[in-house]
Simulated assay, not measured.
Amino acid sequence: MAGRGRPRAFDRAAALRGAMETFWESGYEGTKLTDLTAAMGINSASLYNAFGSKEELFREAVALYGATAGSATGRALREKPTARGAVEAMLRGNIDTFADPNTPAGCMIVLAAANCSQQNREVGEYLAGWRRRAVAELEARLEQAVSEGELPAGTDVRSIAAFYATVLHGLSVEARDGVPLERLSSTVDHAVALWDSLVGRAAAPQP
Rank of each mutant, 00 (worst) to 15 (best):
Gly124Ile: 05
Gly30Val: 12
Ala112Asp: 10
Ala204Arg: 15
Glu56His: 14
Pro7Tyr: 07
Leu16Met: 11
Ala140Phe: 03
Cys107Glu: 05
Arg133Pro: 02
Ala9Gly: 09
Met90Trp: 04
Ala69Arg: 12
Asn94Trp: 07
Ala13Trp: 07
Met1Cys: 08
His169Gly: 12
Ala9Arg: 15
Phe98Tyr: 08
His190Arg: 14
Pro180Leu: 09
Ala63Gln: 10
Ala162Ile: 06
Val123His: 07
Met40Trp: 04
Gly66Asn: 10
Val167Asp: 02
Leu198Tyr: 08
Gly170Lys: 02
Ala105Thr: 08
Ala9Gln: 13
Glu137Tyr: 08
Thr103Gln: 13
Pro180Trp: 09
Tyr126His: 09
Ser117Cys: 10
Arg8Trp: 08
Ala83His: 00
Arg92Ile: 06
Leu138Val: 12
Pro104His: 11
Leu181Ser: 13
His190Gly: 10
Ala165Leu: 06
Glu29Pro: 01
Ala76His: 00
Pro101His: 13
Gly41Asp: 03
Gln206Tyr: 04
Gly30Ala: 12
Leu33Phe: 13
Gly30Asn: 12
Ile160Lys: 05
Arg158Asp: 13
Val62Ser: 01
Pro152His: 03
Asp100His: 03
Tyr28Leu: 05
Gly18Thr: 03
Ala67His: 07
Gln119Glu: 14
Ile95Lys: 10
Thr73Gly: 13
Asp11Ser: 14
Leu171Phe: 03
Ala9Lys: 15
Thr82Ala: 01
Gly18Gln: 04
Thr82Cys: 03
Glu150Pro: 10
Val87Leu: 05
Glu29Lys: 00
Pro205Asn: 10
Leu16Cys: 10
Asp11Asn: 15
Arg84Met: 01
Ala145Cys: 03
Ala39Gly: 08
Ser197Asp: 14
Thr31Pro: 07
Ala112Met: 06
Thr166Tyr: 11
Ala161Met: 05
Leu64Cys: 07
Phe10Thr: 11
Ala14Phe: 13
Leu64Gln: 11
Tyr48Arg: 14
Gln119Pro: 06
Thr37Trp: 02
Asn102Ala: 13
Gly124Trp: 05
Gly52Leu: 09
Val179Thr: 04
Asp196Gly: 00
Ala67Tyr: 06
Ser197Pro: 04
Asp189His: 09
Ala38Asp: 11
Glu182Ala: 11
Pro205Gln: 10
Pro81Trp: 01
Thr68His: 09
Leu57Met: 01
Gly70Glu: 01
Tyr164His: 13
Glu139Asn: 14
Asn43Ser: 01
Arg141Ile: 03
Ser53Ile: 06
Asp35Phe: 02
Gly106Leu: 05
Val167Trp: 02
Ser71Tyr: 05
Ser46Tyr: 00
Val110Tyr: 12
Gly18Lys: 04
Arg176Trp: 06
Thr166Leu: 14
His190Tyr: 11
Leu142His: 00
Cys107Phe: 08
Thr37Ser: 08
Phe58Cys: 04
Leu138Glu: 07
Ala161Trp: 02
Gly66Ser: 09
Ala89Thr: 01
Asp156Asn: 15
Gly85Phe: 03
Gly5Met: 02
Arg17Asp: 15
Ala112Trp: 07
Thr97Tyr: 05
Leu138His: 04
Ala112Ser: 15
Tyr65Cys: 00
Trp24Asp: 09
Met40Gly: 07
Pro7His: 07
Thr22Phe: 04
Arg201Cys: 10
Ala153Val: 12
Asp100Asn: 11
Ala63Phe: 05
Arg133Asn: 12
Glu139Trp: 11
Leu171Met: 05
Ala76Asp: 00
Glu148Gly: 02
Ala128Gln: 14
